[in-house]
Amino acid sequence: MISPQIALHDPIFRAYFWIVLISLAIGGATLGFLRVVLKKDTASMFRTYWSWIFMAGIGLIVVFLGRIPTIVGVTLLAIYAFKEFARASGLYRDWWMTGAVYAGIVTVGISSVISHPRGEEPGTGWYGFFVAVPVFEIALILFIPILRNRARGELQRMSLAIVGFIYIGWMFGHLGFLANASNAYGFICYIIFATALSDVAAFTFGKIFGRHPLRSEISPNKTWEGALGAFAVAMILPWILRFSFPFFGIWQLILTGLIVGIGGQLGDLSISVIKRDIGTKDMAATIPGHGGILDRIDSLIYAAPLFMHMAGYYYPLR
């Protein structure tokens, strides 16, 4: 079980502490070079950069604090991300539906904290219930219109609530469940760091080499060049950071690369589809230079559950 005492002596957590620090320093130095030597206008990039520092600090502290703080942190993030989704999609006006989804997200968090009532040591999470939460949540969401004796427009509300819960609440909740793994530091730190780095890579490669639009109808600013750059970074990274999961073989490393490299991009694009259809640029203006929380965690939402189930298929999480 992860805890502050263990984190202080854990080589993986300590390594990631330095990796994050050094990456931020390199990023800051690069931006400083652009600004001072090349005299580029970097004001907006610096705003994004300060937010990165802030988020990295909070993330490191929360993971350092241990298993339950990590799960609570992920749950709070999921609640806030769903709130942004509900506000953008108009679902927030329906208190019943939003209330049901919030209750579902909290249930996901609880199922990650408690252990199976019969047997199993504490601190493992209740995997069977965690995976089954969507069944109960969808049953609850479908029950709400019947309870209120309403039909008009309910299909839209039910659909939005189910997409919001499954995608933002449950799939993102996998990141919290990873805190139960025996290799929690390696898994959590790697997946967060890798998706963040591949996002930055996509931005950087797109900025420098970007010519051909990736999906012109969905997100006009994303390019094939950026996506390929991010993909390359994501494929190389598991080999560089192999110490995070020393038991991974070649296939697992390749799969990890594919999940982050392709999954991360797809997560980004899938939130763009939602935003494009709603007709908004960002989900919210919560993080300066990034948009909403949902805009920030979009690639993580897609990659974290795939990564967890891939790792869980080959090796027991505990």
Binding site: R87, A88, S89, G90, Y92, R93, Q156, D277, I278, G279, T280, K281, D282, M283, A284, A285, T286, P288
Partner: peptide, 15 residues
């Protein structure tokens, strides 16, 4: 077509 009734203050910061 679905109509999304977005909140009017999406672009505002939390403050």
């Amino acid at each position: 077509k679905w109509r999304y009734d977005s909140s009017r203050d999406l672009e505002r910061t939390p403050l």
